[in-house]
């Protein structure tokens, strides 16, 4: 049934968005092999259920358009409502401020100091003392504000 394939595609997309949101933000530049496995596996498994045994080109075209519409709707909703944006992306989170790690935030977001220091080294900063503020952004990147030199 054509409607079933469209609904399956929509469900697959929204379910995947939900799962990725729950699994947590990982610093984008620091995807470990584990995260690569997760991404490929989630995509592959979702595809199996969404496509099922309907391997026709028309089904592929309709499902791709369905997912595009679903994505457009989410992006529109996110732009319209700050509540939805917060729900979908979360808010930026401070990981390190004034030389002190926010251990609760780090633990809850499953981020280690090494992840922050990897980004710091990328910007030429060697120790936590060189960082004024480290922020986990909504897109999973870690941005650093270096300490101003006295």
């Amino acid at each position: 049934m054509a409607l079933a394939t469209v609904l399956r595609a929509l469900f697959g997309y929204f379910f995947l968005v939900f799962i990725v949101r729950v699994v947590g933000r990982r610093p984008g530049k620091q995807l470990t092999p584990f995260e690569f496995v997760l991404i490929f596996f989630l995509g592959g498994l979702t595809l199996t259920g969404v496509v099922g045994n309907e391997v026709s080109l028309s089904n592929a075209v309709c499902q791709i358009i369905t997912i595009a519409c679903g994505h457009y709707f989410l992006v529109w909703l996110r732009a319209k409502s700050s509540r939805t944006a917060r729900l979908l992306d979360g808010t930026p989170l401070i990981l390190l401020e004034g030389g002190a790690w926010r251990s609760r935030t780090m633990k809850r977001e499953r981020i280690a100091p090494e992840d922050v220091m990897a980004t710091a080294r990328d910007q030429g900063l060697r120790t936590p003392a060189d960082i004024d503020t480290a922020i986990l952004e909504r897109n999973g990147e870690i941005s650093l504000i270096p300490k101003k030199e006295e």
């Binding site: 917060r86 979360g90 808010t91 930026p92 989170l93 401070i94 935030t105 809850r108 503020t133 922020i135």
Partner: peptide
């Protein structure tokens, strides 16, 4: 501002 909302978080 960073825009952190710990209450929501």
């Amino acid at each position: 501002a960073v825009g952190e909302d710990l209450e929501f978080q």
